[in-house]
C-alpha cells in the first residue's frame, strides 16, 4: 500500500488501537517475571513488547501533518471504513467461513460441499447447476488428493 498524504479512513484510530494493544502486550510480558533478572523468561518478551510500543508510537508520530480523511465524525468514518474494506461481500464470505468451521465437525465433506456451493452462488450471483457441479468436482479432487496422495487427517 502506498503512503499517501491523506490518512486512510480509520487510520488514526487503528494506530491508537495498535498502541493500546502493544501496551497490553507489555503488561503481559511484565507479568511473566517482572524485572527480576536480565536473563529471566520475561526479559526478551519485555524487550519485544517495548519495541512494539516504540514502533506503534513512531507510526502514530508519522501521521502528523497528513490530511485527515474526509468524514463527518466517528460514525461516518466507521461507515466509510466498512464500505471500503468490509463490504457485504467480505462480511458475508467471512460469515460463511465461520459457519463452515462451526459445522465442520458434523461432516467434513457435507459442510465443505455446502460452503463451496453457497460461496460460489453468492460470489457469482447465481448459476446453481454449475456451482453444484464444480463443488462436486472439487470435493472429489479433495478426497483423492488428501486421502490418497497426501494421507492427511481431515477435520
Amino acid at each position: 500500500m502506498k503512503k499517501t498524504d491523506t490518512l486512510l479512513v480509520g487510520e488514526r484510530t487503528f494506530c491508537v488501537l495498535l498502541l493500546a494493544f502493544s501496551l497490553g502486550i507489555a503488561v503481559l510480558a511484565y507479568q511473566i517475571a517482572g524485572f527480576s533478572s536480565i536473563n529471566s523468561a520475561g526479559a526478551f518478551p519485555l524487550g519485544a513488547s517495548a519495541v512494539m510500543v516504540l514502533a506503534a508510537l513512531s507510526i502514530l508520530f508519522d501521521l502528523r501533518g497528513r490530511t485527515r480523511a474526509d468524514s463527518n465524525g466517528w460514525l461516518d468514518a466507521a461507515r466509510q471504513f466498512t464500505r471500503a474494506h468490509f463490504p457485504p461481500r467480505t462480511l458475508i464470505f467471512t460469515a460463511l467461513a465461520i459457519i463452515y468451521l462451526a459445522t465442520i465437525h458434523f461432516s467434513f465433506y457435507a459442510s465443505t460441499f455446502g460452503f463451496l456451493v453457497l460461496s460460489m452462488l453468492y460470489l457469482r450471483r447465481g448459476r446453481l447447476v454449475s456451482a453444484l457441479a464444480i463443488a462436486a468436482l472439487l470435493i472429489l479432487m479433495i478426497y483423492l488428493m488428501f486421502t490418497l496422495a497426501f494421507s492427511v487427517y481431515l477435520p
Binding site: M120, R124, L138, F146, F150, V152, Y153, L154
Partner: peptide
C-alpha cells in the same frame, strides 16, 4: 476468482487441521 477463493479457504482449513 469466485471459484478459486472458496477453494483456497478450504485448502487453508485442511492444511491447518493437518
Amino acid at each position: 476468482k469466485a471459484i478459486l477463493i472458496p477453494l483456497i479457504l478450504v485448502l487453508c482449513v485442511v492444511g491447518t487441521y493437518s
